[in-house]
């Protein structure tokens, strides 16, 4: 296994762990953090696989995609955190109600 593959597999693991946290935990802060773990996993896969160039030159395109992806993730996280605060002040809890009870 090459180093790039090891990083990519770590990225897959982060992706899965993040999705687990997103589904499993009720608190919105944990959900938002889990979403960021998921994102970090995806970005790690993209960046790690860029290292497998023919003659050792990393591919700049995936690296640029990761930078764009990170900016988008920052924007989404900022929006989600503010929305979380609004939910918490409107309902008294930073959690989502059980959809089955709605």
């Amino acid at each position: 296994m090459t180093g790039a593959e090891l990083y990519a597999l770590t990225g897959i693991a982060l992706f899965v762990i993040g999705l687990h946290g997103l589904i499993r935990y009720a608190h919105l802060m944990r959900k938002i953090l889990a979403l960021n773990v998921t994102g970090a996993g995806v970005f790690l896969v993209v960046a790690a696989l860029a290292e497998r160039g023919q003659d050792g030159t990393p591919d700049p395109v995936p690296q640029a995609l990761v930078i764009t992806g990170i900016v988008v993730a920052v924007a989404a996280t900022g929006l989600a955190l503010v929305l979380m605060l609004r939910v918490a002040s409107a309902t008294g809890r930073a959690e989502l109600p059980d959809p089955r009870s709605e």
Partner: peptide, 22 residues
């Protein structure tokens, strides 16, 4: 109700985007 609906929607849509990106 709208705020929790928006929050759930935001989490779902961002997570789905990441799955798409992978």
């Amino acid at each position: 109700e709208a705020l929790t609906g928006a929050m759930r929607y935001l989490l779902v849509t961002v997570a789905a985007s990441l799955v798409y990106l992978l």
